[in-house]
Nucleic acid binder design. Structure first.
Lengths: 338, 338
DNA sequence: GACACTAACTAAAACGTTTTCGCTGTCACC
DNA sequence: GGTGACAGCGAAAACGTTTTAGTTAGTGTC
């Protein structure tokens, strides 16, 4: 590998001058600078990041902590697209992305997330899709590292979250507007996301003067098609079944659809089905699923922007709670009741 | 940050001794070693990777180059799960994973993939889901960096690929075994994967004494539901339509299914549909899609193993072409014809 | 011509490790 | 008591940068 020393020798100058020339310092002559840059290029010189990091304490490397309780890993559409968008914006600003090693291995036995981040020299971390309540995660969130959380609000830290309150409100108003009054909600496991959605669910029901039925509110895990299928079955077998079923998310909705079809019923003629997320699959189904598209691009982009701002202007950047609105996507899966 | 110097001072020894103690060198006394390790732990000492890398030229960092022509990025199920598996195995062996910056940015204008890998100090690269024929990618593949390619074979380099020849053969034999003789294949764009599948497609046809009809062989892009839907429409409108349609992949199959349903036809009663990949979606559809499940776990794991072996034993590790067999997954989307 | 000032460059320290080599002391052995 | 072996430790160089604190030469001013 060709280093500054080699370039310096080739140009007959000192390494200090080479460094300054390449970093556009003011105290190096115009033609010398050009000559140095040119020969560096010709010789295939590439700066050594390790050496630079050692001096400057800057690595331009961001970490992404991403552990899915269901082990679906990167296969999780919602988070995958957030990460993709995060990656694109961060890279555009000159940062690279490294996964925070989440698997225990020989080399990091007994090392916490925080320590692994420090060890890797990560300048900031985005945390997504994880059980936020483990001691390890809490240590990271409370640490001195710049951190941005996705869909989880922690006091004094920056978070970017989908506006679930508003999203669910729009979805419910659409459903109620279509004349439905017997609305079931199979929600995901307890989390702030779930609570926000439930809040809106109940509020809109009462706005429309509809009495909430406990029988209609059930639980499955997010992305759990099997459990959603089972719960749908039970809902449909009720003496007074709902006319519309809200699923935990689009993917889980596939289970709901199966259950409906297995009973020989049609969507939306016999029962209406809606999802949440707006992942690609929902729009290529027949019928197209009515859902709320979460703005993953904006979520990822804002997370990256905030994190980088936190790194580059630590004094002036305040912790913010950013809410990104979703968008109602009316499909063909909700029947007009009047 | 507490460094070796601090630990050394606290223990009253030299930094050399601290280094040796922590790295389990033989020439340091037992109790001294214990004392040093203990105080290092107590003081919260963490090795500085940059400094270590500067000396040892090892970063324990692997790159992953992953650019999807369709910009679906990490949302691509097949590659996402390969990456996930790659990540898990690599991390278990003490390596971290960094994305090779694929977006042009201010800071890497005019820098090629290769240069960005070198700059980041990546010790090896896995290349997946990319247009392998760009000059930039070719430069990387021909470079001195350890490289493993996924689903692309390059002479003298290690590759891990799904055994498409065999996979398609099993799928075709299943279809033919069910009595179909009018089989359409909407294949993906030209690539070694596509060619392998086409080869098996034609071979099995001839094995079964079926004359291939050019009308039945069409093209769409992988994961392109719209084009697959359009092509399916044309196939169904043929004077002599096929009884079974093979889609580019499971995801594209959703377009095919839409086209079938739009014509009021049923699967598999009126027409049979099969996919390829075995992604989760295919198994939660109604009817369950007959497909070939590609063994993404093994592909990712083998890729990581080979790459790390290439790094750690450069002399003894040979370039290998690894073929990972898939598995036929019979669903309910193919009708028995006899 | 003495002085201050500036532009353009360099020497050298520093960042936190690893590793080579050498030093010291102890012990065993003849 | 001299020799060698060996265990245990430290000094110092090196890795490739950045950056501080110079040094030198040239220019302008009075």
């Amino acid at each position: 590998m060709v280093s500054m020393k080699d370039v310096a020798k080739a140009c007959g100058v000192s390494v200090a001058t080479v460094s300054k020339a390449l970093n556009n310092y003011s105290d190096v002559g115009e033609e010398k600078r050009r000559e140095i840059k040119e020969t560096a290029r010709r010789m295939g010189y590439l700066p050594n990041l390790s050496a630079r990091a050692l001096k400057t304490k800057r690595t331009y490397n961001l970490g992404i902590l991403f552990v899915d309780e269901a082990q679906s890993g990167l296969t999780h559409d919602y988070f995958s697209s957030i990460i993709e968008s995060f990656k694109v914006t961060a890279e555009a600003k000159g940062y690279d992305i490294t996964f925070v090693n989440s698997n225990m291995s020989r080399s990091n036995l007994g090392r916490s997330y925080y320590e692994r981040c420090r060890y890797r020299g990560l300048e900031g971390i985005v945390i997504a899709c994880i059980d936020f309540y483990t001691p390890e995660t809490q240590q990271l969130i409370r640490s001195d590292l710049p951190v941005v959380t996705i869909d989880y609000v922690f006091d004094g830290r920056t978070s970017v979250a989908s506006d679930n309150v508003r999203g669910m409100r729009e979805l419910m108003e659409y459903i109620c507007g279509m004349g439905h009054r017997k609305i079931a909600y199979i929600h995901g496991f307890d989390s702030s996301t779930t609570r926000d959605r439930l809040t809106s669910f109940y509020r809109v029901l009462s706005d429309y003067g509809i009495e909430a039925s406990e029988e209609y509110v059930r639980q499955a895990a997010y992305r759990d098609t099997e459990e959603t299928q089972r719960q749908t079955g039970e809902l449909l077998d009720l003496p007074d079944p709902p006319t519309c079923i809200i699923c935990p998310d689009d993917f889980a909705a596939l289970g709901c659809i199966r259950a409906v079809q297995a009973r020989g019923l049609r969507i939306p003629e016999d029962v209406s089905v809606v999802g949440f997320d707006g992942i690609t699959v929902s729009q290529v189904l027949e019928p197209r699923l009515t859902t709320v598209r979460q703005d993953t691009r904006t979520i990822g982009r804002r997370a990256a922007e905030e994190l980088i701002s936190l790194i580059e202007n630590p004094r002036t950047t305040l912790a913010e709670k950013i809410l990104v609105p979703g968008e109602l996507v009316p499909g063909d899966s909700v029947r007009r009741m009047n």
